[in-house]
Design a protein around this nucleic acid. Structure first.
Lengths: 263, 263
DNA sequence: CGGGACCTTGACGGAATTCAAACCGGGTGG
DNA sequence: CCACCCGGTTTGAATTCCGTCAAGGTCCCG
């Protein structure tokens, strides 16, 4: 349930301060250093640099893409946190997934007539903007980049599938444990986990909308995990103390990290 | 909850009678006639025909792809019903989506090291088999086919997202109404709906695993819809009597049908 | 100092699961 | 042919889980 701050309709993107700058060069992109990201060929690199029309820095709380609307751009996330979510007419909200650096967003608007979900930033977010009408060229420019898109989309589908399993079948306790582990594993690939601890720039209300639980019950369930000594959560930082037992509890075994296998 | 008929582990594909025949020519594929399927160029058609290594007819109840295992093939469904599902260790099962003619399955095994979900047939199913190790060529052979894969994957992600919204936020009554409408709309694109009625070759237990509800509660909720005169369900046929009110009830407005927009 | 956003806890009621039993066809084998 | 079983459906009753309501607490910011 989304607590609508203002009466009635949700805020329609007040176009928070958006600075456009086409400065950041792709070669020095910090994402390229990660072992979970494949290397580009020179040809691909130059294509991407020509394809990109802008870098943007979005402030926290910006609705970047809006359900039901279209978008002239496809975005790639450089830094920061966001969520993808869907709403029911009466305001009930389901968060589909967290958006983190390396993710591709807005593809739906390019493929279909409109977005079927919204994207909102949780922190300041840096994105790279690519014009949707030139998106076609990407596939013509070589199989590698087209496969990157297929790969990213398939991986996203996989993540959402696991969430669906979670919301549909896991108990509240399992669900909370699962989502913390999920974040842990994703952030670990981005090298943002230190000793089981990572930043968590979101409220329990948001977590409740991820889990399909009420805020109150999310809080109480979280408390159980804290009391049992599995988790510490203080000032925006989550610390998973006992990963192995937590995985056991969540029925969520360690996945092998997924890297682009070919090309 | 999956009622395991035999003790312990799930049946490991007893390789039900599988007849291989590379006879069916793609030009006469009944799917090509549908307005929701885009036309192939001659070049694409000949590539696909060379790419396909076999047609198979699977009997009902066959586990085509198994979670955790790999697959040498990517499949395209010509006819019949199947489901994609995930299991928790203790047997709880979440059905992710129905698989219907025109769907692509097994992509995950091609992109990642193994499948993250299983696929099981509900009826006899006809599939076309494509070798995964030649899958790369598809993208090199032109942007059109690569985009078809991206498109199919994105559409699947979208469907699962809507299910996640449903399981996470909708009440039991809304959920049942939603899934019936979802099937109705998908089957309508395949021209398999007549006057609000369509074949439904699955049990209520399976429906429960789709909805994330128990069998008992699924039954009782379904009964409410029947009693209210929205739905009739007899001998494997579902009849939606009052689509408009049902959509209202489910918070599930009519979506515009999604066809490949370009190429 | 007051307001607001977020977290926390208790009490209560309602929704969904579980347990249990009965029913209904279809198939099988005596 | 009938008895039996089996998978699926239906219904009732008891229990548990989770949501809602309500109130108090903390922290930060104006």
């Amino acid at each position: 349930m989304l607590t609508t701050t203002e009466d009635g309709d949700l805020k329609t993107t007040p176009k928070n301060l958006i600075r456009s700058l086409v400065s950041n060069s792709c070669e020095t992109c910090p994402l390229r250093k990660l072992s979970s990201v494949r290397a580009f060929s020179e040809e691909e690199m130059s294509f991407i640099k020509g394809f990109k029309v802008a870098d943007q820095e979005l402030s926290a709380g910006t609705t970047l893409l809006h359900e039901g609307e279209n978008s002239a751009f496809v975005y790639t996330v450089r830094s920061g946190w966001a969520i993808r979510y869907k709403l029911l007419e009466d305001g009930r909200r389901q968060v589909l997934n967290f958006v983190l650096p390396g993710d591709l967003i807005g593809l739906q608007a390019s493929l279909f007539s409109e977005m079927e979900h919204s994207v909102e930033t949780l922190t300041p977010v840096g994105v790279c903007c690519f014009p949707r009408d030139r998106f076609l060229e990407l596939a013509q420019k070589g199989a590698g980049l087209a496969f990157d898109v297929i790969w990213l989309t398939a991986r996203e589908e996989q993540a959402i599938s696991e969430h669906l399993l979670s919301v549909g079948q896991r108990t509240a306790l399992e669900r909370v444990a699962y989502v913390l582990l999920y974040l842990h594993d994703r952030l670990a690939l981005l090298e943002k986990v230190q000793d089981g601890a990572f930043e968590a720039p979101f409220s329990q209300q948001l977590l409740a909308d991820v889990l399909g639980l009420s805020l109150v019950h999310t809080n109480k369930t979280l408390r159980k995990l804290v009391d049992r000594g599995f988790v510490r959560w203080t000032q925006g930082t989550i610390h998973l103390v006992n990963l192995a037992d937590l995985r056991e509890l969540a029925c969520y075994p360690r996945r092998r990290p997924q890297r682009r296998p070919f090309l």
